[in-house]
Simulated scan of single mutants.
Amino acid sequence: MRRGPRVTYAPHRDGRPDPGEVVWAWVPYEEDASQGKDRPVLLVAADRAHVYGLMLTSQDHDRDAAQEARAGRHWMDVGSGGWDREQRPSEVRLDRLLRLDPSAVRREGAALDRPRFDAVVAAARQFHALG
Rank of each mutant, 00 (worst) to 15 (best):
D32L: 12
Q35L: 14
K37V: 06
V41L: 05
V41G: 00
L42M: 09
L42T: 06
V44R: 03
A45M: 02
A46D: 01
R48L: 09
R48W: 07
R48H: 10
A49C: 06
Y52D: 05
G53I: 04
L54P: 05
L56S: 08
L56I: 11
S58K: 12
Q59T: 10
Q59S: 13
D60Q: 08
D60R: 10
H61Q: 08
D62I: 04
R63C: 02
R63F: 07
D64A: 12
Q67T: 15
Q67Y: 12
A69L: 00
A71Y: 03
G72L: 07
G72V: 09
W75E: 00
W75K: 01
M76D: 02
D77G: 11
V78R: 06
V78L: 08
S80R: 12
G82Q: 12
G82D: 10
W83L: 03
R85G: 15
Q87I: 02
Q87N: 14
Q87R: 15
R88C: 03
R88V: 05
P89T: 00
E91D: 06
R93I: 10
R93S: 04
L94P: 05
D95W: 15
L97E: 03
D101A: 14
P102F: 03
P102N: 05
P102Q: 03
S103H: 14
A104F: 04
A104V: 03
V105L: 04
V105I: 07
V105E: 02
R106E: 13
R106N: 09
E108A: 08
E108V: 13
G109S: 08
G109E: 09
A110M: 07
A110T: 12
R114I: 00
R114P: 01
